[in-house]
Amino acid sequence: MTKEKESKRKIGAIDIGNSRAKILINGQVGSFVFNEMLEETIYDFLLNSLLEGKEWDFVKNNSEIEEVLNYLLSNILQQEIILGMSYVNSENKKKIEDIFKHFTGLKLIDIKLIAERQELLKYDLYAGYGIDRALGIIGAMGYSEPPFITVDCGTALTINPVTKDCIALGGTIGACAYLQLDVLQEKAEQLKNVKLEYNERVSGLNTSHCISSGIIHGIAGGIKNIYYKIVEQEFEGNDSLPVFITGGASDLIYRALSDWEVEPVLNKNLVLEGILRLIEREYSEL
């Protein structure tokens, strides 16, 4: 790649989940809930990240922001922005594509197409192994060489071991914190309006405290138990394997693991970093 071409291209990442999307551009990360404010909040983030903190007071509505962003991309920045895109929900993917199609300088690339030919991680030994799980491992490879285990606390709780030969094992999949709360509140009429909050005291003082404690500390205990089972069965009892915790509920679960001798590493954006790593490798070779 020539320096001239390189200067006219930026790369970023977008991770589309079941309840929200996360975008990484210019070193800034934005998280967006799939609700009626989705388009507006993404527009604001794109404008602020591309302007790098400078304020444009004349922007009043979404159509004007579209004009400003397209003008910035084509006339001021003169850069194409390529976003590697991962998704686990096709309906939400369509919503994101409908927003980004307004910008000629922003290009979405399905990261699955690149992941299929990458050589960093072998993850096709198990049918249906999720791309988000693979990307989290690839993101963690930027901090440690395998073997290690990643724990993704999204809608699902996935525990993802990888061997020293960079082979992803099957791991486990369960329901994570917010999904557990949603189901509990849906099925139990009197357990409504609970906000998940970490409390060091495990035994609750009220219903909300009890539910939060049961979910958060229950998940933390499950992670420990599964970790030691996997270490025993797959890694010859090597209980010094590093653990990386990521995902939307990771900060809550991480706090409940604060006394664990394994000392897990918290990084909420491993999937985004995995996408970015693959995109960087792909376009550095052009």
Rank of each mutant, 00 (worst) to 15 (best):
N160D: 11
G30D: 00
E91W: 13
D239N: 13
L47H: 04
K60A: 09
I223H: 00
L169R: 10
T2R: 14
L205C: 05
I65C: 15
E189N: 13
G174Q: 04
I219W: 02
L270Y: 05
L272N: 01
L121M: 05
Y143A: 12
L278Q: 01
Y126I: 06
D124V: 04
F100H: 01
K195E: 13
I223K: 00
K54H: 09
E236A: 15
R117W: 04
L73C: 06
N269Y: 13
N160V: 03
L157T: 00
F235T: 03
L46G: 06
I14E: 01
T163W: 06
M1E: 05
G274E: 05
L179E: 09
Q79I: 10
I81H: 02
T2L: 14
T158S: 06
D165F: 12
R20D: 09
V162L: 05
E91T: 13
L50Q: 14
G237K: 00
Q79E: 13
N70Q: 09
L50D: 07
C176E: 11
K8P: 07
S144W: 07
L184Y: 00
Y198F: 15
E4W: 12
L286A: 06
L191C: 01
G53S: 07
K107G: 00
R277D: 08
N160L: 13
F34N: 03
E55C: 10
R117P: 02
L270I: 02
D239K: 12
L286T: 08
I81Y: 01
L24F: 08
P264L: 05
I25M: 09
A115T: 12
N89E: 05
L270P: 07
Y143I: 10
V68A: 06
T207P: 02
V33N: 09
I99M: 08
R133S: 01
L120C: 14
Y198K: 01
E97Y: 03
P242R: 13
I137P: 09
N238G: 00
T158D: 02
E234R: 07
L69I: 15
E280W: 10
S208A: 15
D251P: 07
L286H: 14
G130A: 14
Y228A: 00
D132F: 14
W56P: 03
V68R: 12
S258Y: 09
S86I: 06
T246L: 02
I245E: 01
K5P: 06
G247C: 02
G237C: 06
A168Q: 15
Y283L: 11
I96F: 03
Q79F: 09
A168S: 09
Y227K: 05
F235R: 03
F100V: 03
Y227E: 00
D44H: 03
E116I: 04
E40H: 11
G218T: 04
S31A: 12
K164A: 15
R117A: 12
L108P: 04
F45A: 07
T2G: 15
D152W: 08
C153P: 12
T104D: 15
D98P: 08
S240W: 03
G128A: 07
S31M: 08
Y123R: 11
N70H: 05
N61V: 04
N193E: 06
T150S: 08
S90Y: 12
G171P: 02
K112M: 08
D98W: 09
G171S: 01
L266I: 04
P161A: 08
G171Y: 04
Y198V: 02
D110S: 02
E66R: 13
E197T: 15
D132S: 09
